[in-house]
């Protein structure tokens, strides 16, 4: 949802150089020069407005109302509740555990995805042409798997009785398993039972599916760095780690900035994988999206409180993203 606002920002940004050439064309069309960028923005804004802003406004309105099935089917008008949905949601323990799960998950999954993705990106850059292509195709398969299928795959791998993970852990020599984990028998270990182990599996699942995109983006950025810089660094006696810190990272900073924002947005609102892995019956494992969905659509549906949770999630995301982007621009100015 919010990612599109990044587009309008990015789009506006990159169009600035065009302004210099604008006057010549403006004379031909009869529009004042200053208006050209705005006119060009109109189609995009209309699409964003209809597909994003309007539903978003509706969601905010619903979050202040009592909306259930009776109201949806038009038998009764929606009644205005003021802040009641919000106070109810904030009073509920499930909200706070969901918030904790959402934030902790993003805080772990985002850095993991970025670090792993960058590492693989750098590796791809150093590989030969054929090998690099081979690895890219391989990892892109993981990225191409739809979220629901990702959930199904990992749920099956971590199944307590028929799962490959427990089977593999049982294959470890007993002394090794005992030394590492303090136990030798993994038969029936219920991975998808406790909230913490559900989230462990979810982190693996999400990182697995999203690092290829980071890797390929970083690779694209690396291709753009002139080889002379690295040569110069080598001549000056810089080691690989130093080269990465002093050359690669600063030059790729804009790429990392965008990737970080995108990852934060994606990981904050992860839903399908969690829904498949944990189901709706374990409320300790809810994240905010999951809590919003159960409130809004499970019997008896309370779309008002569901919308209130969604608004809270949106606001959190906007704040995190805005703070991050601000930080980024500040650093660029310095």
């Amino acid at each position: 949802m919010t990612d599109t606002s990044t587009l309008s920002r990015g789009g506006g940004h990159s169009s600035t150089p065009g302004r210099r050439r604008a006057p010549r064309r403006a004379r031909a069309s009869g529009l004042p020069a200053w208006s050209i960028p705005y006119v060009l923005l109109i189609p995009g804004l209309l699409v964003i407005g209809a597909l994003l802003l309007w539903p978003l406004i509706q969601m905010v309105i619903i979050s202040f109302q009592k909306v259930g099935l009776v109201q949806i089917s038009g038998k009764k008008p929606a009644t205005w509740l003021g802040l009641e949905n919000y106070t109810n949601v904030l009073d509920n323990d499930i909200f706070w555990s969901s918030l904790r799960n959402t934030v902790v998950f993003a805080a772990v999954a985002v850095p993991l995805t970025l670090v792993l993705g960058t590492a693989v990106g750098v590796l791809l850059h150093r590989l030969g042409k054929k090998m690099s292509l081979f690895v890219i195709i391989g990892i892109m398969f993981a990225w191409a798997v739809p979220p629901v299928a990702q959930g199904v795959i990992w749920r099956w791998l971590f199944d307590a009785e028929a799962g490959v993970i427990n089977w593999a852990l049982n294959l470890l020599p007993d002394w090794l398993s005992s030394a590492l984990f303090g136990r030798a028998d993994w038969t029936g270990q219920p991975w998808l039972n406790d909230a913490w182990s559900i989230y462990m599996v979810l982190i693996i699942c999400v990182v697995w599916a999203s690092f290829p995109f980071i890797a390929v983006s970083v690779l694209a950025g690396l291709k753009g760095i002139p080889a002379e810089l690295y040569e110069a660094a080598r001549v000056d006696g810089s080691g690989p780690w130093r080269t990465f810190r002093k050359i690669t990272f600063p030059l790729l900073k804009p790429v990392f900035a965008v990737l970080t924002v995108l990852s934060i947005i994606w990981d904050f609102k992860v839903f399908a994988q969690l829904y498949v892995l944990a189901g709706t019956s374990n409320r300790e494992a809810y994240n905010l999206s999951m809590y919003a969905v159960t409130e809004a659509f499970k019997a008896p549906p309370k779309m008002g409180s569901g919308a209130a949770i969604a608004v809270v999630l949106t606001v959190i995301l906007l704040i995190v993203t805005a703070a991050y982007i601000r930080q980024m621009f500040k650093q660029e100015e310095v």
Binding site: T6, L7, S217, G224, L259
Partner: peptide, 21 residues
């Protein structure tokens, strides 16, 4: 620097296209 920026813009657009899809 410039190339990195273009990459960033491309990445964003690609990501958005996926999001919209």
């Amino acid at each position: 620097m410039r190339i990195a920026k273009i990459t960033a813009a491309t990445v964003t657009t690609a990501a958005l296209a996926v999001g919209l899809a």
